[in-house]
Design a protein around this nucleic acid. Sequence first.
DNA 1: TATTGTTATACTCTATAACTATA
DNA 2: TATAGTTATAGAGTATAACAATA
Lengths: 153, 153
Amino acid sequence: MTGDASTAALTSRLGYLLKHVHLRFTEASAQALAPFGVDGRELAVLAVLAADRPLSQMEAAGRIGVDRTTMVALVDALEGKGLVARRRSTEDRRRNTVQPTAKGQELLREAEQARAEAERRFLTPLPDADRDGFLRALRTLAVVPEDERPESG
Amino acid sequence: MTGDASTAALTSRLGYLLKHVHLRFTEASAQALAPFGVDGRELAVLAVLAADRPLSQMEAAGRIGVDRTTMVALVDALEGKGLVARRRSTEDRRRNTVQPTAKGQELLREAEQARAEAERRFLTPLPDADRDGFLRALRTLAVVPEDERPESG
DNA sequence: TATTGTTATACTCTATAACTATA
DNA sequence: TATAGTTATAGAGTATAACAATA
């Protein structure tokens, strides 16, 4: 079947595995969220913007780890769908505070449930005992170790 | 620190975690392979092309899971670095067989060691007991389940 | 001078469509 | 007619540079 050396050369590679698991999940996620008219990335941005305190675009960009120019496009898309609203900050008029609309809040609630369900389904092939460990490992590896950070390096 | 709700909204997301772990590893991998003048993707292609039997570009594309037009660019890059050689197949003159050069074979051996070392280092933050389980989980999730495949669906 | 949002632009990765040569 | 390789082109996703408004 697919058990030859050439295939093993790939499935033993961490980079290949991470890339393809991510690709597979992105697909599953997009499918689950399609009825809501958003993808996983937009939903994540919406969730971040639904913080207890209104965030500026720069703050949101910092939390998500993208450039401020990228955030412009993300907010444009959400605003175009009527899910968030920009408002000039009264304290610092250079800033936009961006907040979910009522429609955005409702979509967030419902789509988050669909996302959670899609994640659960995606992880189904893993033995019950392995699932938590897998997520814990991902959380550990997603964070750059203190001594490898740009500033302190 | 980073323990607010807005951050939790991200670190509990499978898509976000997979994306960022992959990004972090791609960086680490690129750094480890820089002395060899290749990145992880090129090294993976080179490893696949070093099969026991010479592969055509289509065969290589199929194993790696990319389009044949993407394979053209990948082989162009490897050929430009003198790591592989194209040869018109004598059996079917539409096909190129692509094989590593002597230089490519040597680089493959040495760079593969650097890659393995980089992977080991990247997984260091995980407790010893969790490492094998993590890789096993990735291998499980990288494969599309039988009943979700395009053809049989 | 520095920062926020914006626009224009460019780069990477990847795919689709169309072409050439072979089958 | 169909397939392998190629080229031209386009679409994501992301970043850098430059600009206007504001601090």
